[in-house]
Amino acid sequence: MKRVLWSIVLAVLVGWAIWGVAAERTISVAFIPQLIGIPYFNAMEAGGKAAAERFGVNFIYQGPIDVSAPEQLRIFDALIAQGVDAIAIAVLDETSICPAMERAAAAGLIPFTSDSDAPNCPARRLFVCQALNEDLARAIIDGIAIRLSPGDPYKAVGKIAFVSGYPTAVNLNTWMDLMEEYVNAKFPGLKIVARRYAGGTAAEAYRQAMDLFTAYPDLAAIVGVPSTSIPGVGQAVEDAGLTGKIIYTGYGSPLTARDYIHSGAMTFSVLWDPWALGYLTVWVGWLLAQGVALDQIPVEIELRVPGLEDRPEVAVRWIPEKKIVLLGPPLIITKENVDKYDF
């Protein structure tokens, strides 16, 4: 009941905002990606532009040309000086960006995060989150289990191996830990037999995967954890003659995975839709700038974002405990939909 009430309140506020925009000045929303020029953030930029057009927002997209926290900070400060209404950032380094967020808040700007969070920073109003790590981990394991045992996934039996990137990558390690926890909790027949680090090259992922196939001839599934591992493992599946005989999955962008998904070497890939994430980011920024205090809503509610209704796998929710706006469940990429994405 409370939830419904809040939803109505919000709908009224959103309506007011749309009307208010027409009457008043143009809102400007900025987004700072971790790196410009890569397909992933290009897709976010495109989504952001689409939202900006729809809601009449002045969208500013600026980021470092190299993965550089100091450069991000410099851009952030420049945007404060410029005086935008809301400013979103895909955080590279929480400790350095947090004071800047406080400065922004003090100057009357609305700082929030998107794509990558700074959870311990009080000034950050909320986090626009692409997918929960738990959901990402489950999507992989569920996908493997249902293919191994279509009748009852929890009875699936088989060995799974991970080919990760650099051993220092926190997000990759988190995903692997969560996958392992989920397997141990729910799937007695599944077993994670190896966790290999291939650094950042296709060649290394290829070598590690080939050796894994030799070491575990009965391997049921192999997971290429970062995008960098996707082509190497895919090539290894093909070269070892395991296309169609092994489940190959991972967190690969459609561009990287496309070739192997089409050849059948890769079964499915799990990620999210950066276009929708960019769209959502601008929408959230626009709302906040209008004075719609989304972050003050005390209950978990669904948010209907105009323009995202037709995107699959998008189910935007506000989760007050974590102060996040969640895009939805992970995007499952298969032969059927891989050609629809360009990131």
């Binding site: 950042g200 090259t201 296709a202 060649a203 290829y206 960098t228 082509p231 190497g232 090539q235 990287t256």
Partner: peptide, 9 residues
């Protein structure tokens, strides 16, 4: 062999 060139090649 790899039909792929990554940034960190």
């Amino acid at each position: 062999k790899h039909r792929n060139v990554e940034m960190t090649v």
